[in-house]
Write a protein that binds this DNA or RNA. Structure first.
Lengths: 336, 336
DNA sequence: AAAGCCATTGAAAAGGATTACATGAAGCTT
DNA sequence: AAGCTTCATGTAATCCTTTTCAATGGCTTT
């Protein structure tokens, strides 16, 4: 049987309460404290966190539910959240929903059983709807996918603005037939679609949007289909990192040149973004800030459960690279 | 106060023991079982996992310690491990050590406090050494970084073989001055270095190895330095994904063409590997198999604690892409 | 019909910590 | 010097389950 607080107490010649107080920095005389610490070292005692959680009614655990940890944005997010959590002595339970509402339900139940202190969640659209009705016994902070300001705090990119920025940028370099490719599972895609629509409209450009599963393969297939038609687009905006890669692949298959034939741009900056093709133009999300803000919102919420819900929008940063470089030599340059 | 098993028992008119038995599929008459299930549904009762763990002395939790979840190999590994764990009703605690021995120590202590069932660990070299002495109260399976067959099970790529494959491949396309770039924290790098040495030696090639921090930046700096000398190499092997990206960046900075001037190759296949430059030649690790095998070893170990340690080596797959294409037109083609 | 057996069920202990409350000693006030 | 406060410490209750053990009642067996 493992060493318990009792063994330490016995060895140090004190009560278990005193040992406990040593751990929680309670009032203990220096002399006893030292004896206890010696006993801890000698026995190699480790407090049992399950027992501590049970008694103190504090799980010191937060849940993190995302679609897939392998998606670069979520990878980075999880790292930030874990760092912040450990810094405050908390644990993280990570769940991959694979965009499935069933798995979301299953994991929500798990969160309840773990008695998590709070949940940071990038919900599917279905999950978001359910959240409006169901009452969860812990605070929830939505990330990446927010919806309108509801009962829950959220922190998201200003997707509308960011997508509009991309459209304007493509317009600036002379593109007029810009199509948009969006995921079909998240609310993020909806926001980006709206930004795309309003920007193309305000510029008097035609618009055409496609919704597919948020994967490189689906994106590639869709783009191949779109480009098999006459009257090809001269610009593509993809609403996620993986989809952008699918677009690049499709361009290769079609032997189209970037940016000469088609300019492409998308979301999320990665180490390799500058190395793919001529470099990918992307909106960089402040993922560090997003993660830290989510934790801040969560901790604030724990302090003031009744405060009104907050929705924090952070702006992305446009990083221009070769995939949207102005085409030179082929067309007449404007003279200023 | 949350609903406990007592409330359910009271509502169903049974004892708490019976409710507990319903959850564990113990012997309960169909009639009572139904009454209990109704009460559970009515109250929205969720078992308290801390209490369950405390009493049953089963944490149903495994630890996963890696250098950084953002490193693509570890991202993929964590996903596999989590999937496997959840399928067996277990939880995963993820820790990022950032290659720091201090953090490893800290997290090992955490693992003990959590009373983890087992640990899957990609240790630093320092951690590996300590592991040889210290006794941990739970089984450990080493992944990615194994060392010699010691007291612990491990599952690793056949790094020696894999690196030799890369050297032979570069030799096949006519490269003779191949340098190797290796990380300076992991045992993996050592194994790869050895494979590199023995392959170059057996081919009668010169060899030159560099050890740097396992990041894109460090790799880029080192390569810039190496290539500032006269008598440039015509081939580079990088021992990780991130370092390979650093090499590509360096080539861009130096305006060297790949593969014409320098052929480059490395480890780990990602979605974007084929899209960087002319496509990156890499050794693909069977990360799914590695993760599943680690779980299998762990579960086996729990069943038979005394069985001798096993070291499983899996072989990588060479994926040839443009970064090591034979150069045509510049040199005379051999005639067959 | 008595004895033995099996399947259900409940009462109570146990798991390892935290914490409310009681206690006792020391220091302070007046 | 009596009484009051303060501080360190110990005792015991408590958190919520699982699990052991005993009890019950219905059957079968002889």
């Amino acid at each position: 049987m493992a060493i318990s607080i009792k063994d330490v107490a016995q060895r140090a010649g004190v009560s278990v309460a005193t040992v406990s107080r040593v751990f929680s920095n309670g009032p203990v005389s220096p002399e006893l404290r030292e004896r206890v610490e010696k006993a801890i070292a000698a026995t190699g005692y480790r407090p049992n966190l399950s027992a501590r959680r049970l008694r103190s009614q504090h799980s010191q655990t937060i849940g993190l539910m995302v679609a897939d940890i392998r998606s670069p944005f979520f990878t980075a997010l999880s790292r930030v959240v874990e760092d912040e959590a450990y810094r405050s002595g908390m644990r993280v339970i990570l769940c991959n929903t694979d965009e499935s509402a069933d798995r979301e339900t299953m994991y929500l139940r798990l969160m309840e059983e773990e008695r998590v202190t709070g949940l940071i969640w990038a919900p599917t659209r279905g999950g978001l709807e359910r959240l409006a009705d169901d009452d969860l016994p812990f605070p929830v902070v939505l990330v990446d996918r927010g919806g309108p300001v509801g009962r829950h705090d959220s922190v998201v990119l200003d997707n509308h603005q960011a997508t509009a920025t991309l459209v304007h940028h493509l317009h600036t370099i002379g593109r007029s037939r810009i199509v948009g490719l969006f995921g079909n599972t998240s609310s993020t895609a909806i926001d980006r679609h709206l930004g795309y629509l309003s920007a193309t409209a305000s510029l008097g450009l035609s618009s055409e949007a496609f919704f597919v599963a948020p994967s490189a393969e689906a994106a590639e297939r869709e783009i191949l289909k779109v480009f098999s038609r006459p009257d090809r687009p001269d610009g593509v905006i993809a609403s996620s990192n993986l989809m952008l890669l699918g677009v690049v692949k499709a361009m290769r298959r079609l032997v189209l040149r970037t940016p000469d034939d088609v300019a492409i741009a998308g979301f999320d900056n990665e180490t390799w973004s500058e190395l793919v093709g001529p470099g990918l133009t992307v909106i960089e999300q402040p993922v560090g800030d997003i993660g830290r803000m989510a934790m801040t919102l969560l901790f604030d919420r724990l302090k003031t459960p009744k405060a009104p819900a907050r929705k924090v929008m952070l702006s992305g940063r446009l990083i221009v690279r070769g995939s949207t470089a102005p085409v030179t030599g082929l067309v007449d340059e404007p003279v200023d």
